[in-house]
Simulated scan of single mutants.
Amino acid sequence: MAAFEALFRDFGPRIRAYLLKLTRDRQAAEDLMQETMLAIWRKAGQFDPARGQASAWIFTIARNIWIDAWRKQKRPTFDHDDPALVPDPEPDAPERMVLSQSGAALHEALKTLPPEQVELIRLSFFDDASHSTIAAQTGLPIGTVKSRIRLAFGRLRTALEEFK
């Protein structure tokens, strides 16, 4: 106990000052200093004087304890009521009907397009392929892919307006 008291008297204020510089919070520095001193006491048998000075070992323990506390503090808490985490409500009957009719209208509008434009729309929007990937797959120049998709959109827009 006398050795711990001497160690505490000698290193306690220095560790507190070091942790205060890191945390900028007196109470946190005091708590971390006490935690550091307990860790030093528990790990005293692990100290090897051949590997360096005792002060370097002690301040390494203090720094590691501060890092652990900082990581715990910075970890976001999980809020079950966060609107971003709540799934969208299921559509009610009128919304489902509108979605179903919109889907049916889109299918009918796609039937009005030439097959090569339907294929480009499918690759781009349903398979999520980039224009360059589509160009490589189809053997078409990238400019042709872009212009055909743009043309297909114009035709789809016209066809969907007719279904309204």
Rank of each mutant, 00 (worst) to 15 (best):
A3E: 15
A3T: 14
A3Y: 13
A3M: 15
E5M: 07
A6L: 08
A6C: 06
L7Q: 02
L7S: 02
F8C: 13
F8M: 08
D10L: 15
P13W: 04
R14F: 04
I15E: 01
R16W: 15
R16G: 10
Y18Q: 10
L19G: 00
L20Y: 15
K21T: 11
L22R: 06
R26M: 14
A28W: 02
A28E: 14
A29W: 01
E30D: 12
D31E: 14
L32N: 01
L32P: 01
L32R: 01
T36S: 04
A39H: 05
I40K: 00
I40N: 00
W41K: 02
K43E: 13
F47H: 01
A50N: 09
A50P: 02
G52K: 01
Q53M: 11
A54L: 10
S55W: 08
A56L: 09
W57L: 01
T60I: 06
I61K: 00
I61M: 03
I61Q: 00
A62S: 03
N64Y: 03
W66C: 01
I67R: 07
A69C: 03
R71F: 08
R71C: 08
K72G: 14
R75H: 07
T77Q: 14
F78C: 02
A84T: 04
V86A: 09
V86Q: 13
P91W: 02
D92E: 07
E95C: 06
V98N: 04
L99P: 07
L99Q: 14
S100R: 15
S100A: 15
Q101F: 13
S102H: 12
S102Y: 06
G103M: 06
G103Q: 08
G103P: 11
A104K: 12
A104R: 12
A105D: 15
A105H: 09
L106K: 08
H107L: 13
E108H: 09
L110W: 02
T112H: 01
P114F: 06
P114D: 14
E116P: 07
E116T: 09
E116W: 10
V118Q: 15
E119P: 07
S124K: 15
F125N: 09
F125S: 09
D127M: 14
D128K: 12
S130F: 04
S130C: 05
S132E: 12
S132Y: 07
T133S: 10
I134N: 00
A135S: 09
T138C: 06
T138R: 08
T138Y: 01
G139F: 02
I142E: 12
G143Q: 09
V145I: 09
K146F: 03
K146P: 02
R150H: 08
R150M: 05
A152H: 05
G154K: 06
R155E: 15
R155D: 13
L156H: 05
R157A: 11
A159N: 05
E162W: 11
E162S: 15
F163N: 12
